[in-house]
Amino acid sequence: MIEYHADDYGMFRTQSRHIIDCYHNGALNGISIMPNSPYLAECMEEIKDFKKRLAITVHLNLVEGQPLTGDRASRLIDNDGNFNIGFAKLLFVGFVPVLRRLYYRQIRREMEAQILACREYMNDGKFRLDGHVHYHMLPLVFDAMMDVVGEHNLEVSYIRFPREDLNIYRKVSGKIKGVKLINVVKVLVLNALAGRNERKYKEELVRLGVQKKFFMGVMLSGHMFYDNVKECIPVAADIMADKGLQDMEILFHPGDVTELTEVSQITSKDDLDFLNVNSANRFKEAEALVKFGGGLKR
């Protein structure tokens, strides 16, 4: 089974409507929701009639907007109270014992607040977890997340491990467009981090019954267009079969942010570039989801 998944649902009203249009008119069957967004409750109300048909995931967020724990997350925010902590910095901090302890307390507290804030939105009472810009793969963040899961004895059915098989892209080389060197670096880093987290928590993941899924979405991040993805799926399916996997998550970002009032509220420069400056690419990713769904109204 393929899960056609969109991140960032609930970030803003109009942006979220653009995402859910891909459910009504396309193949979208999974969304990740922004726990700290002031618009989340309203956006979840919009989908209450068909929420059960979507795989809903907590999109743990240390990048965009403000923390649910406010100034208790002082090491993670700027003077305006917005998240302002880089991926590389948190990776480094995780390996320095003194700093790790200081940051861990605040990250764990925020992870707890975000996860529990989404409890009512989870289907069947089971949590699915991932992270905005994949921050949840950082050892410091992953450890905090797993500690929260353990302390609250939460049922977790899925955690996104954004580990991509590079053989896919070697085999379709020349047939796809948009592979960037920075994305190659991201895949290598995330593959290494995913490996560390899977090894450290192997027994716990088995105990929880966390589902394993094949994943695509980082190597072509920003270019998950129909023509690209359709070339990758058959190759990915063969690799999946060899690995004994039956399910795949394909990640898209169809939620452009183009309404001026929403653009003005974006706090992360990277998000601004990705969701607004490159909004044409978000339209193309939405178009891909429609094409994969046959463009039929449900």
Score class of each variant (00 low, 15 high):
residue 58 V to E: 08
residue 67 P to D: 14
residue 77 I to G: 02
residue 169 Y to A: 11
residue 174 G to Y: 03
residue 161 F to L: 01
residue 140 L to P: 01
residue 165 D to S: 04
residue 51 K to T: 13
residue 265 Q to A: 15
residue 93 V to T: 14
residue 253 H to A: 13
residue 279 S to P: 14
residue 264 S to K: 15
residue 284 K to E: 13
residue 58 V to L: 09
residue 262 E to Q: 14
residue 27 A to M: 07
residue 228 N to H: 09
residue 268 S to P: 05
residue 97 P to G: 11
residue 252 F to A: 10
residue 91 L to W: 11
residue 2 I to L: 12
residue 244 G to D: 14
residue 182 I to M: 00
residue 277 V to N: 05
residue 238 D to R: 15
residue 219 M to H: 06
residue 224 M to N: 05
residue 93 V to W: 12
residue 73 A to K: 03
residue 236 A to I: 02
residue 16 S to A: 10
residue 41 A to Q: 01
residue 197 N to Y: 06
residue 266 I to C: 08
residue 53 R to T: 15
residue 151 E to H: 02
residue 87 F to N: 06
residue 68 L to E: 06
residue 103 Y to W: 00
residue 258 T to C: 13
residue 197 N to L: 07
residue 55 A to T: 10
residue 240 M to E: 10
residue 150 G to Q: 07
residue 201 Y to F: 07
residue 212 K to N: 15
residue 13 R to H: 15
residue 146 M to K: 03
residue 145 M to D: 07
residue 225 F to D: 13
residue 297 K to I: 15
residue 225 F to P: 11
residue 136 H to K: 03
residue 114 Q to N: 07
residue 54 L to I: 12
residue 61 N to D: 15
residue 189 V to Y: 03
residue 247 D to I: 05
residue 296 L to N: 11
residue 107 I to S: 07
residue 8 D to M: 08
residue 40 L to V: 14
residue 240 M to S: 09
residue 98 V to Q: 00
residue 274 F to I: 04
residue 47 I to F: 01
residue 229 V to F: 05
residue 122 M to D: 06
residue 298 R to P: 11
residue 53 R to Q: 15
residue 185 V to R: 02
residue 233 I to L: 15
residue 294 G to Y: 03
residue 107 I to H: 06
residue 5 H to S: 09
residue 249 E to F: 03
residue 77 I to Q: 01
residue 184 V to D: 00
residue 82 N to H: 02
residue 211 Q to C: 08
residue 67 P to G: 13
residue 97 P to H: 12
residue 181 L to V: 15
residue 223 H to R: 00
residue 22 C to M: 11
residue 233 I to M: 12
residue 51 K to P: 11
residue 289 L to H: 09
residue 78 D to P: 05
residue 32 S to P: 12
residue 247 D to F: 04
residue 75 R to H: 14
residue 132 H to T: 02
residue 79 N to C: 07
residue 172 V to H: 03
residue 261 T to C: 09
residue 148 V to G: 09
residue 123 N to K: 14
residue 207 R to D: 15
residue 280 A to Q: 07
residue 155 E to A: 12
residue 154 L to R: 05
residue 48 K to S: 14
residue 52 K to I: 09
residue 18 H to L: 13
residue 138 L to I: 13
residue 191 N to K: 02
residue 214 F to R: 03
residue 36 N to V: 06
residue 178 G to N: 12
residue 110 E to N: 03
residue 183 N to W: 01
residue 3 E to S: 13
residue 94 G to S: 08
residue 59 H to S: 08
residue 289 L to V: 10
residue 270 D to H: 12
residue 101 R to T: 00
residue 109 R to N: 04
residue 51 K to R: 15
residue 171 K to R: 08
residue 30 G to C: 14
